[in-house]
Computed example of a mutant assay.
Amino acid sequence: MTGIIFWNCRGASKLSSRAYLKELVRKHHPIAVFLLVTRKQSLTRLEADKLIGRQWSFEISPSL
């Protein structure tokens, strides 16, 4: 199934949150994953890799 995941990253530093997101990606095979970071100005590539793995392209649109 083709799909998109939008996920609010609040609490993303918790191992259980990261494991949950990785399981969602593994189970549903989305074509895109959008991460909304509410408590930070930016998200680094390394932080994104920890959340969903390195196999994804990475783009960031900083908040205004």
Rank of each mutant, 00 (worst) to 15 (best):
S57R: 13
A32I: 02
R54N: 05
Y20S: 05
P62V: 00
G3Q: 10
H29C: 09
Q41W: 01
T44C: 10
E23V: 04
I60D: 08
L64T: 02
N8Q: 07
Y20A: 06
G11V: 06
E59N: 09
K50T: 08
V37W: 04
I52N: 01
T44E: 11
Q55R: 08
D49H: 08
K40F: 03
V37K: 09
S16N: 14
I60R: 15
K22P: 04
F58L: 01
S16Y: 11
W7S: 02
I31Q: 11
L24F: 15
E47V: 05
L51S: 06
R39I: 02
Y20Q: 02
V25F: 07
Q55W: 02
Y20T: 07
S13E: 11
G11Q: 03
E59I: 07
Q41S: 08
E47I: 08
K27P: 04
P30Y: 01
L24Y: 13
L15P: 10
E23D: 13
L21K: 11
E47A: 10
L46A: 09
D49I: 11
F58A: 00
S63F: 10
A19W: 00
Q55E: 05
E23L: 10
T44Y: 11
S63E: 07
S63I: 11
L46C: 05
F58S: 00
L15A: 12
H29Y: 09
M1N: 15
E23I: 01
I5E: 04
R39P: 03
R39G: 04
C9M: 15
T2W: 07
H28G: 13
I31S: 12
K27V: 06
T2P: 13
L51K: 01
A12G: 15
V33I: 07
Q41E: 10
S61Q: 13
V37R: 09
T38E: 14
A12E: 09
G11W: 03
I52P: 01
V37T: 09
A48Y: 08
L36E: 09
R10W: 15
I4C: 07
E23M: 11
H28C: 10
S57Q: 13
R18N: 06
K22Q: 12
S42Y: 05
S63V: 12
H28D: 13
T2Y: 09
T38N: 11
P62N: 05
A48V: 10
G53S: 02
L36V: 14
P62W: 01
L64V: 01
E59Y: 09
E23Q: 13
N8L: 07
L51H: 06
L36Q: 14
K50I: 07
V25E: 04
L24K: 15
M1Y: 14
P30K: 03
I31A: 08
E47F: 08
K14Y: 14
V33C: 11
H28L: 14
G11F: 03
S17W: 15
L43C: 06
L36F: 11
W56L: 03
K50C: 08
F6W: 12
F34C: 08
F6N: 14
V37F: 10
S13V: 03
G11E: 03
H28W: 15
A32L: 07
I5L: 12
I52K: 07
L51G: 04
L64C: 00
I4E: 02
